[in-house]
Amino acid sequence: MPGITREEVAHLARLARLELKPEELDHFAGQLDDIIGAVARVSEVADQDVPPTSHPLPLTNVMRADEVRPSLTPEQALSGAPAQEQQRFKVPQILGEE
């Protein structure tokens, strides 16, 4: 398994939206490398013909009828908002796409 570089940690941090400090990048690079090195053992079974289990329950088809249930009030919905305006969640400018 490849070692985890500082650049890789920085890339993961961007994907995960964590503004890691430089010292954290170094720290995590070492730790993640150790942990991955240890848990990489699972790949011993990679080529075994075993179906994956994503969930412990053998349930299927759990669905609800298309019936309206009460929503929160807008006040409740917005009660935790760090900022709001016009009954909407107020967020800083979105760089997004245009």
Partner: peptide
């Protein structure tokens, strides 16, 4: 549909903002 894909909130158009939301 009358309700959203994963919750029972109404999908009716024209409602006031954030009035058709739940946890």
């Amino acid at each position: 549909t009358r309700t959203k894909m994963f919750c029972g909130c109404s999908t009716e158009l024209g409602a006031e903002p954030n009035s058709q939301t739940c946890p």
